[in-house]
Design a protein around this nucleic acid. Structure first.
Length: 550
RNA sequence: GCCCUCGUAGCUCAAUGGAUAGAGCACGCGCCUCCUAAGCGCGGGAUGCAGGUUCGAUUCCUGCCGGGGGCACCA
């Protein structure tokens, strides 16, 4: 559970709940009341719709209920409440006193790197599988979206209190891999690459790197495995450069080894549960029992397993290794596959909602007026490494994370190249560097003293941009919760930009090193320090570096 | 044809039932004796169309239009 004393907004919500309880008597509200930041400054620092929600049950005008709620809030919050008013159709607007803001800053500083952490209720063991591109070529630029999304989602869920694993499912078994091997062999011998093969120049590089490439006594199937191993190392290195590291690269091949193999064990379990039947010489899973629109084949006529069978065995493996929830980050071209996966998951006796498929929309790399085609087989693609060389790791990660995963993303290469300094990520990093610079100016003793000070009883009113910045900082726990619950890393990208903007406004309005009083200087140093810490925290979640000078 | 998904400023994106829809880029005009001008201020500009539910809809529902994707004993 969240440590309530380190989340000022949670404390405020608790006070609101008590006030609402005293007003509503025995009546129940239709929904929990909101407590949110209004868009306009004239509407206070927080607003609640509680009175409007209570109106039907109490059969009274919302504004009258709101007036009683104002009195109850005044009793709850005492001197920490500067103003409370009824507005519009029955909103209650609150403005907090400077003592509240000072206390809130103290709570943020006390929380440190744990600010906004641990809200998950209950914490779960969650496995996030992402990218999982076939190991038949380098990582393409578009996979950078999947990689950044999956990785940052994992970081956010982890901060929120879940136990999170990252896996990459390696399709190292089957005909695509054999095509790769045949292509490498053809390149090594200077022969034309087969129709079904891979044409890219990278195939020639692999051929040059593998001693057995042209050796006729080494069968193509062995060569295929060597090529996969080689490519997998490249993939791992590229993703590591992109700050994406996995707990495990899970081999599909391993599901076919041993006796019984993973696939055999999975199908045995499904058979035991009565979901499997034979028809026309093939073995089928009755996925229509769990919402799919047709049954699916596990073993084809002739005995070959389908990829679906391997996928089921992999889901079983995840389950048996103790993962309570499985998140799959899939490409838009796989969404038709989801109903059968969900049906198979249910057939394994799991609650269907514990398998979540997040469908990523496409990334288009735009160059000039054209969308670059990215086909591995034709060798016409931009690799993730190319993109990182071109616009940098920080800009790539931020750009990929900026938009919601269910929207298509056009990444304009010309723009990214020409205007990389205008990317929002630099603005955020600049705010962080500036904080570091200012804090260096005041010296370590002042900094330590400022951080340790208690602010609650200090006199004096705060400047508007000081209050706004504190409120922005206080918004982090809620953003973490939203980003976690909605699987929406882009919220954190938007928050980071907003926080940087709020800091810049404070920096403009309020001299830090040159504050008029000693007490005010210490307070501003503490505020800048807290902001730097939260910026570092969110940049870390985004996988973007937090430079101390620029 | 059927199914899924997305349409918000010129462009890239925010906003999961709240009040006058927010940023960045681009554009126009102003700001460096001043803790980093990679910055700040001011200005114009947007919810695809039509209904419905609601005190209140960018948000939920229906239809239409437009983009993307999917409808294999392929991988």
């Amino acid at each position: 559970m969240m440590d309530v004393s380190n989340d000022p907004v949670s404390d405020l919500r608790a006070a609101l709940d008590r006030a609402v309880a005293s007003v509503r008597g025995g009546h129940a509200a239709a929904a929990p009341p909101s407590l949110e930041r209004p868009k306009r400054a004239a509407q206070g620092e927080f607003a609640t719709n509680a009175a409007m929600l209570l109106a039907p049950a109490l059969a009274e005008p919302p504004r009258e209920i709101a007036q009683r709620l104002c009195d109850a809030l005044q009793d709850e919050l005492g001197a920490n409440l500067a103003a409370v008013t009824v507005a519009g159709p029955g909103f209650v607007n609150l403005t907090l006193a400077s003592s509240w803001h000072r206390g809130a800053l103290g709570a943020v500083l006390a929380a440190g790197d744990r600010f906004g952490a641990g809200g998950a209720a209950p914490p779960e063991r969650i496995l996030v599988e992402f990218v999982s591109a076939n190991p038949t070529g380098p990582v393409v630029a578009a996979s950078g979206r999947h990689a950044a999304f999956g990785d940052t989602l994992a970081r956010i869920l982890s901060h929120y209190g879940h136990t999170v694993g990252r896996e990459y499912y390696v399709n190292d078994f089957g005909s695509q891999v054999l095509h790769l091997g045949a292509s490498v062999r053809a390149r090594a011998l200077g022969e034309p690459v087969p129709e079904e093969g891979y044409q890219g120049d990278y195939v020639a590089k692999i051929a040059a790197a593998l001693p057995d490439a042209a050796n006729p006594s080494v069968p193509v199937s062995d060569l295929s495995q060597q090529a996969v191993t080689h490519l997998l190392e490249e993939i791992r290195a590229t993703l590591h450069r992109y700050r994406v590291d996995y707990d495990r690269f899970f081999s599909e091949r391993s599901l076919h080894e041993g006796s019984p193999s993973g696939v055999e064990a999975a199908i045995a379990e499904l058979t035991e549960a009565g979901h499997v039947y034979e028809h026309d010489g093939a073995v089928w899973l009755r996925t229509t029992d769990f919402g799919d629109d047709k049954d699916r084949v596990l073993y084809r006529t002739g005995g070959d397993h389908t990829y679906f069978a391997s996928d089921i065995a992999y889901m079983q493996s995840k389950r048996d290794r103790g993962w309570e929830r499985q998140i799959l980050v899939l490409g838009a071209d796989h969404h038709g596959y989801v109903p059968r996966l969900r049906a198979a998951f249910a057939s394994l006796g799991e609650a269907p909602d514990r398998l979540e498929a997040l469908i990523m929309q496409l990334v288009h790399l735009v160059e000039g007026d054209e969308r670059a085609k990215m086909s591995k087989r034709r060798g016409e693609f931009v690799t993730l490494d190319d993109l990182l060389d071109e616009i940098g790791i920080d800009a790539t990660r931020y750009f990929m994370l900026q938009s919601s995963h269910d929207r298509t993303l056009d990444l304009n290469l010309d723009l990214a190249r020409a205007q990389s300094n205008d990317n929002p990520v630099y603005y955020i990093q600049y705010a962080h560097a500036r904080i570091h610079s200012v804090l260096g100016r005041v010296g370590p003793d002042t900094l330590a003293g400022a951080r340790a000070a208690g602010w609650v009883d200090a006199p004096g009113e705060l400047e508007a941009s000081e209050r706004e910045l504190i409120l922005k900082l206080c918004g982090l726990p809620e953003e973490i919760a939203e980003a976690s619950l909605r699987r929406a890393p882009h919220r954190i990208a938007a928050y980071a930009l907003g926080l940087a903007q709020q800091f810049t406004a404070f920096y403009r309005d309020c001299p830090i090193a040159g504050a008029p009083s000693e007490e005010g200087r210490a307070f501003r140093v503490a505020l800048a320090s807290a902001t730097g810490g939260v910026l570092r925290l969110v940049l870390e979640m985004l996988g973007v570096s937090a430079p101390t000078s620029m």
